[in-house]
């Protein structure tokens, strides 16, 4: 039972981190109609910025600030230089141009930091376990769940309760109209893109402290985030949250249950490897099933 609760918490933790990635992607797609493969690169930029600042200053908080700032700045720069030219293009051009950006970002970061992974330490205040009723759980992972939920609430507040949120939602519905009403649509787009980038960078830094910080770390997460927004429905933040939790839980619980089930029919180490990989397959089966049933995702419209 304690193991089950712990694994559910792990699933929620990886789910909320996926949500940080997926929220940015879904906003960018919903508002600008852009499919951004380079979102994983911004995750990586955040993680590298955090690792570099943490090793220079020793402060985790400064590292997080650096991750947010570096990813937002990289996002704004890329938006102004490249992405802006892609809004009117078809999806194929968007896929290619952002694939090109992945190549540039990945190899550029490898050029600067080298091929070896960097390490980002969990801050002392958050390391070690915490008692949660009957079980002990990692304090840091619990903090990640908290941060993720706070960011989710913040995003709902931003999109539903503020003036800029009204503009974002109006931009999804009818971009010509809000431009005609005097909203500077170019600045709004840059803002949304930088916001999405900052969320991705934050996720990269936070997850980078549990895993290693290396080139190529962003793309597996990017693909999972795509699965999340396909499941949730493109453009829906609520869908992104639900989809992220579903994917996180499927991945984590499948990763425990499948090796256990397979160990009945094969030896333990083979069952571990096969089960963990099959749990990944389970995510895509979940996605295919949901799409077969609802081709626009759980909360998609149109």
């Amino acid at each position: 039972m304690a193991l089950l609760i712990e694994q559910v918490l792990n699933g929620v933790q990886s789910g909320v981190m996926l949500f940080l990635m997926a929220a940015g992607l879904t906003l960018i797609f919903g508002v600008m109609g852009l499919i951004n493969l380079a979102h994983g690169s911004l995750y990586m930029v955040g993680a590298f910025a955090a690792a570099a600042v943490a090793s220079a200053t020793g402060s985790f908080l400064l590292a997080l600030v650096a991750a947010l700032a570096a990813a937002a700045a990289a996002g704004a720069l890329v938006e102004v230089l490249v992405i802006r030219r892609l809004y009117a293009r078809d999806h194929l051009d968007q896929v290619l141009a952002t694939f090109a950006l992945i190549l540039i970002f990945s190899e550029g970061v490898r050029w600067i930091f080298g091929s070896f992974p960097l390490f980002l330490d969990i801050p002392a205040a958050l390391s070690g376990p915490v008692m949660l009723g009957p079980i002990t759980y990692s304090k840091y992972r619990l903090a990640l769940i908290g941060i993720g939920l706070v960011v989710a609430l913040g995003l709902f507040w931003l999109t539903q309760r503020t003036r800029i949120g009204v503009q974002i939602r109006a931009g999804e519905a009818d971009r010509e109209m809000i431009a005609a009403l005097g909203v500077d649509i170019g600045r709004l787009y840059t803002f949304v893109f930088a916001l999405g980038a900052a969320l991705a960078g934050l996720a990269g830094a936070l997850v980078g402290a549990i895993q290693s910080v290396q080139v190529g770390m962003g793309e597996p997460v990017l693909i999972l985030a795509f699965v999340v927004i396909v499941i949730g429905g493109i453009g829906s933040i609520k869908g992104a949250l639900v989809g992220a939790l579903l994917v996180g839980l499927t991945d984590t619980l499948g990763g425990v249950a499948l090796p256990a089930a397979l160990s009945l029919v094969m030896d333990l180490s083979a069952a571990q490897a096969t089960g963990a990989a099959l749990a990944q397959v389970g995510i895509y089966v979940l996605m295919a099933a949901i799409l077969f049933w609802r081709p626009r995702g759980l909360y998609g419209h149109g």
Binding site: H91, I223, V227, V230, V281, L291, P295
Partner: peptide, 25 residues
Amino acid sequence: RTSGVYFIMITLAFGQMFYYLAISW
């Protein structure tokens, strides 16, 4: 069953599915 950006993402996801299937075999 889908089109446009959904089609791109789903084909990408199937690619990953086969990638992990190959690893798990």
